[in-house]
Structure formats: structure tokens, C-alpha cells
Nucleic acid binder design. Structure first.
Length: 609
DNA sequence: AACCCGAGCAACCGCATCTCA
DNA sequence: GTGAGATGCGGTTGCTCGGGT
């Protein structure tokens, strides 16, 4: 209860004090429900004291027993909420610090409305600890490490395990990245309030630097996925609909600070990230406005189960690693990974469709590899920050429109990406977040490019034109989208930002390069398709390492499996970067694939610690 | 002084998920 | 395998407060 004297708590207490006994009694009477044994409404100091006393004696949990044992006329849910949000001794009350605010914004850009995860203070991190224990010295983790609870919170490059550091030290390093002492409710309220405020003020929800950071993270993660062991065979066996998107395409999304004109954020209606869809979308595709801009987010299950987490880097679509293998046959596994994959290839015909889900992280955007034509069978529900959503809908002139169907989104994407295969357009429609905005802009940019020129579907690297074309406010004004009711839009920013799309040698070069890559990939896929179907059936799904392929274990003697499952010759390298050397893999994995039981034991032991 | 309105926040609600018998 | 209870999460509601008119 050390933090009970904070400003917020004072306010709570003062409220309680203001309530005269008469008021309290009246309130109590008013809030009695059912048989009169349960009270609703604000908690009194006396109730708090009873609850605190109870928890001190019996510990947390079994909340429904509180009423029974303490005589508190509150339901278990209410007790839990009160304890978690106000009475817990480790709560940090008071206004959010600027650092915390920024952290929330960053987290929201990556995670969406995952308030509880943002608020996570203590984490089950045995999985990452296992990784870090065997991390090579003076090497840096190359990307976020997807692991239960903490995976979304470890930004690129922030984890730098150093030899000699105790695990607890590393754990602290990680924990500090979170928002200790903050409750999900607090964060949620903060965000909602902030969003409303900024919308009213016409400010972007996400500051530009957050945009850049997210983009950089995404780009780096994308690059990180590139296989690093020199074995190029994987390029030939990329799964259908799961090309590795050529990095050159993402360069077009790399915005640099100098790209932003000084008054960028002041452009009426042109705020980068919270522009209503109607103002964003050119009227040419305005009919699809309900479908796009801020894509609804198909979210992973609300909770990640605690017992089955595997370390995965974000930014990597595991379907790239394990083509033609439905990774999520095990629903638990799917939830743990929160894999982004619309490519729900059903090998056996009995794999539940719910196996499709997303990385909750932003990298689903760049690596989503989502098919735009495969039937969408998300077991997850659409989600989008409500305020963003309302903005989108209202601005489209269809305020009562229901949630856009994913099929509609698909249609939009397909229709706009002329000349692209349905597989090479990583749609972030699942994210509904910052990346989705950027992606949508990119999509529209491509669409517009197609309309204006048949030369290429590849947008020009905007950095090329930034210095030439954007010298100040006037330039931005000049690029205002005439079709937008507000005159400017992020769409126009992107689509008009590359006025010299065709005719540039660079453009042509990039186009040829990409088309060539795609062509080769398609050919390779066609050749591999049948063979992969066959070999996928040979995978032992019951093994925890089936995801990793046989040669995950380095130079094992299992040559046959390497041959058959040469899907990824060095998945862990791809997952974690080439710094994670094979020696470490050997160490980490217990030298043999058959040692998984031992590894599991280690993990369990770590968890128990 | 009275009223209005928006901000901030605590609490509730419905649903999903987990646990366990 | 299944169902009931427990728990957790995210969205929403409603209350209080403070500022403006």
C-alpha cells in the first residue's frame, strides 16, 4: 500500500470521504442487486480495507470466496478489479510520465488495444531466458523475440545480453521496458482520452517519430528474416503465396525525417495517421472506403496461454519457414505464436480454420504475406481501436456501416494491385494500426501508379524525391488530394509523393528486379508444390521441433530429413539473426533434436524458478 | 448561482479463456 | 471429453469534477 498516497488515490479517497454515511447507505441500497447481497458502484474505504485485509490473509485469487469469507458484499469480479486496479501495493499511481506516455504510444502502435499486455509488469520469460542463456557473447539480439507475455514489448535491438550478466539482471532489463505498476485500465483510459483529445485538436494519434520507429523496426525485422547461412535453396521452396517480399519494396516505405515538411502535422486533414478514411482514399476507390484505410485488426486470441510459448522472432512469417505446413494445427501453438498467416493451406483437410491468426506485433504488416484471395477464416475477431474505427466510418459517410468484411478488403486490395500476384502483397489489414495506415497508403499509391502509368507497380523510393519535391508547406499543399474533402490526405502524401513514377531508370530497374524475383519464385513454387505437399505430410506435428525443420540442429546426421525438409536450412538463424551461431544452437538445443524433452525440462525448471 | 459540457476515471458488462472435477 | 466455475480482457457506461457561459 505504499503508493496509496498518490494523486489519483487521494482523489479516490476524497471521493469516498465526500460520501457521507447517508450517501453511502443510499448508494449501497441503490446498488444492491438481485437478492440484495451484492453491492455495485464505487467502493468505500471500509470495503477497501476489508478487501486488503482479506488478500493479505488469503492471497490473491479465489475472488468469489471473498464475499463468503470476509462478508464483503461484492462479487468476485468486482473484488478482483478493485484489487488489481487500486489496492495492489505495487501500483504506480499518478499521472503518466512523458516516458510512460511515449511507451504507451509505441506499444499501441505495435500492439493495438492490448491494454493488459502493455501493463504487464511481471512476465513469464523462461523462454527468452533459455535463449539468452545460450546467447553468444557480444552479440545482439537481432529482433524482437516473440515469447509469451513479453514478446511484443522488446523492441528491435534493445536486448543486448552480455556475458556474465545474471538472468535476473537481464530480466530486469526487459521488465524496465514495460509499464510497471500501471494497470490496463489506466493505460486504456489514458489512451482513449489522449486519442479523443488529439482527434479534436486535429493531431495525429501517432507522432511521426513513432511512425518512423515502427517502420524501421518493421524494415529491420523484414531484413532479419532473410536467411543468412548462405544456403539459397530456400529461395526455391518458398511456399505458394508466401514470397519473401523483395526488400526494395519496403524501401519505399522508409520515411526519413527530412521527408516531413515542417508543417506536416498541421496540414488540415492531412495528419499522417488518423486521417479519416474518406479523406484518405481517393474517390476513385472511395466505394471501398469502408473497407480500408485503418484496417480492422484480426486479433489473436485475447489471452496467450502460459504453458506453450516458443521463441520466435517477430517479423518472420513462419509460413516462409515452413511452407505448406499448417503451423497451427495445434491451436495452442498458434495462439502462442500469434502467427500472421492468411495462407491457411489446409493440407489434411481437417486442420481447423482457426489456425489462422496474426502476429499481434506490427510486423504482420510487412511480413503478413497474406493472401488476398484465400478464403478468410479468421477465428479471431476484428478489432480496431474504437476511436480510429469510428473515425474511419464516420468519415466515409457511412456511419452506420457495419464492420467491413475481410472479403471486401481483399477485393479492394486485389483490385488495386494490378499486376501483382495475389501473394506478394503483404496486407496489414489485420493490424489496424500504424502499419496499416502506411500500408494502405502504399497500396493506394500503387493503385494510383497503375492508373497513371502501366510501366510499373513498384513505387519509387520516396526518399529519392523527397529533397527535390518537398521543400516546404507549399509542396505539400501542391500535393493535396483534390478528391479529398479536406484537400489533403496521407494517401495523397504517398500517392502524389512520387510524381515521377515512370520513366525513372531506377524505377525501371527496381521493377524489373522485382518482377524477376517474383517470376523466379513462382516458377520455383510451381516445381516444389507437389513435392512439398508430400513432404509436409511426413512432418511429425507432435514434435515440438517440427516447426523448425530437421536441420535446425545444425550438422546433425539426419541428412534425409534435411533433404526432405530443406524448407529452411537455418531457421534459427533466420529467426534470431546470423549472430546466433550454429555452436550456440547446438548448445541451446542439447546437440540433438532428440533432446527436446531435456530442453522442455530445462524450460520447466526455469519457469518454476 | 445555475447550467452546460467535456475530461478523466472507476466500475461494470459481456465474452473468451482457463482450470478442474 | 465435458461442463461448470473462475479468471482475465477489452469495450462501454456512468459518475464526478472543473471550467466556461
Amino acid at each position: 500500500m505504499s503508493n496509496m498516497t498518490s494523486e489519483s488515490e487521494d482523489r479516490i479517497m476524497s471521493r469516498d470521504c465526500i460520501n457521507s454515511p447517508t450517501v453511502d447507505e443510499a448508494s449501497t441500497e441503490r446498488n444492491m442487486i438481485g437478492n440484495g447481497t451484492l453491492k455495485k458502484g464505487p467502493w468505500t474505504s471500509a470495503e477497501d480495507a476489508i478487501l486488503v485485509d482479506y488478500v493479505n490473509k488469503h492471497g490473491e485469487g479465489n475472488w468469489n470466496a471473498v464475499q463468503k469469507h470476509s462478508g464483503l458484499s461484492r462479487c468476485g469480479k468486482s473484488c478482483r478489479l478493485r484489487w488489481a486496479n487500486h489496492l495492489r501495493p505495487d501500483l504506480k499511481k499518478g499521472a503518466f510520465t512523458p516516458e510512460e506516455e511515449r511507451r504507451i504510444i509505441e506499444l499501441h502502435a505495435k500492439m493495438g488495444n492490448k491494454w493488459a499486455r502493455m501493463a504487464v509488469e511481471t512476465m513469464s520469460i523462461w523462454n527468452i531466458l533459455v535463449l539468452l542463456e545460450f546467447w553468444p557473447s557480444n552479440k545482439t539480439v537481432k529482433s524482437s523475440i516473440i515469447g509469451e507475455d513479453l514478446c511484443w514489448y522488446v523492441p528491435f535491438g534493445q536486448v543486448e545480453p552480455v556475458d556474465g550478466l545474471a538472468s535476473s539482471t537481464r530480466r530486469n532489463c526487459l521488465t524496465e521496458l514495460q509499464l510497471p505498476g500501471r494497470t490496463d485500465n489506466e493505460i486504456k483510459n489514458f489512451w482513449n482520452t489522449r486519442t479523443k483529445r488529439r482527434q479534436r485538436a486535429g493531431l495525429p494519434i501517432y507522432p511521426p517519430d513513432i511512425c518512423l520507429q515502427t517502420l524501421n523496426d518493421n524494415t529491420q525485422s523484414q531484413n532479419m528474416v532473410t536467411f543468412t547461412n548462405g544456403d539459397t535453396s530456400h529461395a526455391e521452396i518458398l511456399p505458394t503465396n508466401n514470397f519473401q517480399i523483395p526488400a526494395v519494396e519496403f524501401k519505399n516505405l522508409e520515411l526519413s525525417h527530412e521527408l516531413y515538411p515542417p508543417s506536416f502535422l498541421d496540414i488540415p486533414g492531412g495528419n499522417f495517421l488518423d486521417i479519416p478514411g474518406g479523406s484518405l482514399l481517393p474517390q476513385g476507390i472511395g466505394s471501398s472506403c469502408n473497407n480500408s484505410f485503418l484496417f480492422p485488426m484480426a486479433h489473436a486470441p485475447k489471452r496467450i496461454r502460459r504453458s506453450d510459448t516458443y521463441p520466435v522472432c517477430d517479423g518472420g512469417d513462419l509460413n516462409d519457414f515452413f511452407p505448406n505446413v499448417n503451423l497451427y494445427q495445434d491451436d495452442k501453438l498458434a495462439q502462442s505464436f500469434e502467427i500472421s498467416s492468411s495462407y491457411n493451406q489446409n493440407l489434411n483437410g481437417d486442420i481447423p480454420s482457426s489456425s489462422s491468426c496474426f502476429f499481434s506485433g506490427s510486423h504482420a504488416f510487412l511480413n503478413g504475406n497474406t493472401s488476398s484471395s484465400e478464403p478468410i477464416s479468421w477465428a479471431t475477431k476484428l478489432e480496431l481501436p474504437s476511436l480510429q474505427y469510428s473515425t474511419q466510418m464516420g468519415s466515409c459517410g457511412a456511419p452506420s456501416s457495419p464492420l467491413p468484411s475481410l472479403e471486401s478488403v481483399d477485393t479492394l486490395i486485389q483490385s488495386t494491385l494490378i499486376g501483382q500476384t495475389k501473394s506478394d502483397s503483404p496486407s496489414p489489414r489485420n493490424s489496424g494500426l500504424l502499419e496499416a495506415v502506411l500500408y494502405e497508403s502504399q497500396t493506394m499509391k500503387m493503385s494510383k501508379s497503375n492508373n497513371n502509368s502501366n510501366a510499373s507497380v513498384v513505387p519509387r523510393d520516396i526518399t529519392d524525391s523527397s529533397s527535390q519535391n518537398l521543400q516546404g508547406d507549399d509542396d505539400w499543399e501542391a500535393y493535396g488530394d483534390p478528391m479529398s474533402p479536406l484537400g489533403h490526405s496521407a494517401a495523397s502524401v504517398f500517392s502524389e509523393y512520387t510524381p515521377h513514377l515512370s520513366g525513372s531508370s531506377l524505377d525501371e530497374h527496381q521493377s524489373v528486379e522485382i518482377i524477376s524475383v517474383k517470376h523466379e519464385a513462382e516458377e520455383a513454387i510451381a516445381k516444389q508444390s507437389d513435392r512439398e505437399d508430400e513432404k509436409a505430410n511426413h512432418l511429425n506435428y507432435s514434435r515440438p521441433d517440427f516447426l523448425l525443420g530437421s536441420n535446425w540442429f545444425g550438422s546433425t546426421s539426419n541428412a534425409d530429413r534435411n533433404k526432405d525438409q530443406s524448407v529452411v536450412s537455418d531457421p534459427i538463424g533466420a529467426l534470431l539473426g546470423d549472430d546466433f551461431c550454429s555452436d550456440s544452437k547446438q548448445t541451446f538445443l542439447g546437440h540433438e533434436s532428440g533432446k527436446w524433452d531435456d530442453i522442455s525440462e530445462i524450460c520447466r525448471a526455469a519457469e518454476n524458478r
